[in-house]
Design a protein around this nucleic acid. Structure first.
Lengths: 343, 343
DNA sequence: GTGAAAGCGCTAACAT
DNA sequence: ATGTTAGCGCTTTCAC
């Protein structure tokens, strides 16, 4: 091999080529491409545009990023993009970012701290302009985030994180509304199928469930804990069904878990909601299409994602961090015992 | 405002600072950071590592990308990351890319050609090293992809695309196996709930369905078409139920649609599989947890994503394009009439 | 309205 | 084993 290794350069045509072809300076090409900061005579502009078109010039984003110190890219760290709740969030974040001209680098951390940390580091090295972190861990690696000095916002985070912007929902209020609804159906033995991985922090959903029970003068129901997955919910469901005093209603901390619980109940040959009523949390699309459709507490995922991106990109540096808490909405369907007439 | 606008530079500490602090040249720092291309004396390396640690140095990826002509980033264009099938694909692509040191820029195109085109252009401008395109459109914007001169691979694409790498499944064989299974249950009136957006191209799933019917000497069943969504399937289901000669079995071209069909059947007060059996295509997680669990043709999404990324990143330039077709596997569950014993 | 040129942080060929 | 340095493509200040 005597031929010099040609780097796999693709975008061979540069600003310089365009300038030469159009008979102007490279600066003018920049002005045209960026619409500023200087004005360009219409005739010159036309020449440049024509040259760009003819040559098939495409600006090199890396060079721009180097010069500007901004890649116009944000990073998203989520536990698992194949979990419907997070994939919806990811989609919404992508849309919101694209709206502002930012691209989205997606990373999955498998709910695992080491991977989450690696992803954050990697994003930091890639000069992203900000990171949206949606961790299941209640103690995500904020230190790393701080060290990277990258603006960050915690999405799907309902506890205040000192020093960080965060956006989440009012977990307790949402859970409480669902449990109250279950109570209104006459249930007195309402179990909680809680998710795990929330650290030693007292989850708002658990709180809301307790509170609704207490306010109604009802005894505490049983709690089972499992991961925020269909499998986890299935396991929880089976445990609950096998319990000595089987609950007549179950509140699940996520739709995923509720779907697993539904399956466990079906398999046991019991009827939903007649034998056991179910309600859950999230308001995913799947909750509407499982059988029976789930009564669930809907999180405004889209609005939250938009708020997170705005907080990230449009908050002036050094600004006091904001903790945005969105309200939830109880979606009443059949799994709680409410019969919905069909169209 | 008389203070000069300080650019929002974050990564203030550069290779030069490290070099100065460690008392070496910038080249040596590079060698240490990159593990080459030259060797560095252990003592020197230690000094440099220490300086890096102390100074909190993080390499600037933009500069590296500019120099190397590679951003070590790939782009993914999918219709909708909130569709479980695509979010699974996206996750798998992310994992495969990360494995090779590449980050993933995610873009959703909403199954819309204009947006798909915009996303491709945007990715091209961002100097991604390759694009994985997973379009629902059967005629994605290959011209744009070609113009950008970016290596690309079509994922979830089962028809040969001349000049492009592609990876997909054998749609016809998969569909055929499912329909044959339905036939083995004694069904003779098997409808097809097909997806739309596949252009004028004759979808393999339709082909497989027809073929299975023909080979069994059965009459052609009815076809209804709707988008690849739960809502679409629901609409198809209702149409099928209202038909004069109601089918006793339905094959759906995607799990999403099947889930909608399930709901329509439930709402009609009919039993699955006794009144109507259902089988579908994809093998998503949801298919296992709906009720009854769906008999479905599983696509090896993970393997396909890995193959796509490898084809993208590890195929020498100028190499003859490959068309990889993966086999599917029929997952037999209860919706077809097979009773699975419970553990 | 237009142009010249410095320099963003990094890599690697070439010199020592 | 280590150092010097050109230059990747771009933006923008400063001169004209």
């Amino acid at each position: 091999m005597t031929t010099p290794a040609v780097p796999a350069q693709r975008s061979q045509v540069t600003r310089k080529d365009v300038a030469r072809y159009a008979g102007v300076s490279t600066a003018v090409v920049s002005y045209v491409v960026n619409g500023g900061p200087k004005n360009v005579a219409p005739a010159t502009e036309a020449k440049v545009q024509e040259a760009i078109r003819l040559l098939g010039y495409r600006p090199n984003a890396a060079a721009r990023a180097l010069k500007l110190g901004s890649s116009e890219t944000i990073g998203l760290v989520i536990p698992d993009n194949s979990n419907p709740f997070f994939s919806l969030l990811a989609h919404a974040v992508e849309d919101a970012a694209a709206e502002l001209g930012y691209a989205l680098v997606l990373t999955n951390s498998a709910g695992n701290l080491a991977k989450e940390r690696r992803n954050i580091r990697n994003l930091a090295a890639r000069q992203v302009d900000g990171v949206v972190l949606s961790s299941v861990l209640m103690e995500p690696d904020l230190a790393d985030l701080e060290a990277a000095e990258i603006p960050a916002v915690l999405l799907n985070h309902s506890a205040d994180a000192p020093g960080f912007n965060s956006v989440g929902v009012d977990l307790a209020a949402g859970a409480k509304s669902a449990v109250e609804h279950l109570i209104s159906h006459g249930h007195t033995n309402i179990a909680l199928a809680m998710g795990t991985n929330t650290g030693n922090y007292f989850d708002g959903r658990e709180q809301g469930w307790l509170q609704a029970l207490a306010e109604a003068g009802l005894p505490e129901g049983s709690i089972v804990r499992s991961p925020f997955t269909r499998d986890g919910g299935y396991a929880s469901g089976r445990r609950l069904l096998a319990a000595a005093s089987r609950p007549t209603a179950i509140f699940a901390s996520s739709d995923m878990q509720a779907v697993g619980i539904l399956r466990a109940i079906h398999e046991a040959g019991l009827s939903i909601p007649d034998d056991i009523a179910v309600a859950s949390f999230d308001g995913s699309a799947e909750s509407e299409y499982c059988w029976p459709p789930l009564t669930t507490v809907q999180q405004p995922a889209q609005a939250m994602a938009e708020a997170a991106v705005r907080a990230l990109l449009q908050t002036p540096r050094g600004h006091e961090p904001e903790h945005l808490i969105f309200p939830t909405e109880l979606l009443v369907r059949r799994s709680c015992g409410c019969e919905k007439p069909f169209a």
